[in-house]
Amino acid sequence: MTKALETMIKQLSLEPVTTDIYLGESLDILRSGRIFGGQVLGQALMASSLTVVPERDIHSLHAYFIRPGDVNIPIRFEVERVRDGGSFSNRRVAAYQHNRHIFTMDASYHIEEEGFEHYDAMPDDIKGPENFISERQLVEQLADKLPPSVVKRYLVDGSPIEIRLAHPERYLKGGDFPAKTYYWFKADGHIEGTNSLIHKAALAYVSDAYFMFTSLFPHHQSSFDPHAQLASLDHAIWFHRPINMNEWHVYVMESSNAGSARGLTFGRIYNQQGVLVASTAQEGLIRHPVRFGNVK
């Protein structure tokens, strides 16, 4: 297991404080001065799941990012046991720092049941992970064109998840690109077990990476422009089938709308066998750097 993956798993392993209250460690893994949204998603999923019997599996979560997180102090997660019915359990998670509400999430759990089954097939034009290079290799090639914080993150700190972007040029420079892309990902190392809670939390963690940038592609806007104001506003995940983060998955993303300084993106996550394991949705703040500046 790499040090970066070990650090992520440690972050996702919460410290119990009292009944239904947990502490999660904060780290500035993006070197942006703010907590990565995927970290809070994964930790909140862990917190809610710790209050549900193992026979009930997470099937959906819906979250809102309310305030930027402080990377210098832990996050306090408070779980409300909304309902435990005959087949479903519902939980509400509120995350706090400095006694201020920074994040909220509703999660639903379901017993294992047989039922009808279908799913959208993986797009035919998806190329396998062997056709692309890793983020680290990409950063090595483009080190002189990227912010120093990005270079240090990948070449010094490392990443817990290996990601291989299909269209890196759509993030790096502004252009009139289609509002869609995909990337392959898996744990950079080995996570014990398969389809366990930690695998689902790791998927939630990576599901926020590069997601909202898809809505910028048609607008001649670089995702790395320091003058643009970009932030995740909400995030939803539907878990459909077993997840093994030790194997390659492909994240297919497409933005259906941009307007009013917000961009909406939908995602589908397939394993390498082409089976749909999860679906996602997110709206992000995408303020134009010239027109909006640093308006809050």
Rank of each mutant, 00 (worst) to 15 (best):
A94S: 15
Y96C: 01
N90H: 13
E117T: 13
M212V: 15
L50V: 04
G175S: 05
Q11M: 15
G85N: 02
S279D: 06
H118P: 06
T265H: 03
Y64W: 11
A63C: 13
M253H: 04
G37V: 11
M253D: 04
I75S: 04
L30V: 09
G37W: 07
L12C: 07
M1D: 08
A94M: 13
I161F: 10
M1W: 12
D106P: 03
T280I: 04
Y171H: 15
I126V: 14
P226E: 05
F103G: 08
M122K: 09
D84A: 13
A258C: 10
V17L: 06
L165D: 00
A187H: 04
I198Y: 10
Q141Y: 10
D28V: 13
I243P: 02
N257A: 15
F185H: 13
S48Y: 00
A281F: 12
M46C: 07
R76E: 15
D124A: 15
V93F: 00
I102N: 06
F77D: 02
Y205Q: 03
G274S: 12
N246S: 08
R83Q: 04
G115I: 11
A143C: 02
T18H: 12
D70A: 11
E254Q: 14
V40F: 03
G115L: 10
G293M: 06
V250K: 02
Q11Y: 08
R268I: 08
S223L: 02
G115Y: 08
